[in-house]
Design a protein around this nucleic acid. Structure first.
Lengths: 165, 165
DNA sequence: CCCAATTGCTTGAGAGTTCAAGTAAGCTGG
DNA sequence: CCAGCTTACTTGAACTCTCAAGCAATTGGG
């Protein structure tokens, strides 16, 4: 009954795993070596830096970085210890925590970004021609569309936005 | 000096990260839930099952599963504790360890494979049309070619049917 | 109202991964 | 033939991630 993979599918599958693991590993290593943070943390800093007031609710941030709330909570705790992120309570809904990128965190991110972007180019874009990049985008979109269609995609700031810095 | 990503590249990059993480996560979760092992361990069992005598040197196994020797050593230790893999010393070169898939390990793999293959289809192949699958294979090959100076390394193992006894 | 279900987030324990060292065993050139 | 390098693998500590609970605030049906 099992729909086994034929040889072509098998090769494609193994190549996909190897390639995606390779890219992730190269990035993670580069960031850890050059900036002292894992890629997951870098992503957190990036999303915060792009948010209005460099601030997001924990749950919104978790959604943006494709992380469980638990994982994000642990990560933000570490980032807080480093002084790169700060938590603030929400007055309107006391269950909510705001995560805020500190100035120091922003500086660290700014310092890390050029090396990271260069690594992304070397690991992915420089290895593909423009057609392949376009097709990769389509393929990834199709994969993502295949699961978890989240109805609430609009970035609703929610109640009680914090004061802008 | 930094070759920043333009908006299209930015979107492609984020889609690639999200898609590859999604697939890996879905697989890892499925295997852990249904068969009690992480995907990395499954991969080890697969490669051993395909090897002659269901046996490989640790270093060869590490190369086949794209793992550091350290990671593999820890993993095999766990698999040994479960009775799925056994280590044997090599008489010819006493530095070498053979990893051997036990009968019990083979049974576990055989039981896990159908569900895993189904998950691979649902997570990847069922979301793409045949053209996209073909292009994905090309793209992954290009990415791997970009940094694989070792011609002897095969890509990461996948869900394949366990080799016949 | 009010109590149960839900929501938002945190915590703790257990596992896996990584890097740096560490241990042998084999090889090599003087 | 043996000092010193290399190879093969293991170990330990630090860290991250996951799952399952847990807690407090909020919501909603009766």
């Amino acid at each position: 009954m099992t729909r086994w993979l034929d040889d072509d599918e098998q090769r494609t599958w193994r190549a996909f795993l190897a390639a995606s693991q390779l890219v992730q590993e190269e990035l993670d290593r580069q960031l850890l070596r050059d900036s002292g943070m894992p890629h997951a943390y870098y992503t957190v800093l990036v999303r915060l830096s792009e948010a209005p007031g460099r601030t997001l609710r924990m749950s919104e941030l978790a959604a943006q970085v494709n992380s469980s709330q638990s994982r994000l909570s642990h990560a933000v705790k570490r980032l807080e210890e480093r002084g790169w992120v700060r938590r603030e309570p929400c007055a309107a809904d006391k269950r909510v925590s705001w995560a805020v990128l500190t100035d120091r965190g922003f500086e660290v991110l700014a310092a890390a970004a050029p090396g990271h972007v260069e690594a992304v180019r070397q690991s992915l874009f420089d290895r593909l021609d423009p057609d392949q990049v376009r097709r990769l985008a389509e393929i990834c979109a199709a994969v993502l569309a295949g699961s978890a269609p989240d109805p609430e995609t609009s970035p609703d700031p929610g109640p009680g936005a914090p004061a802008a810095p």
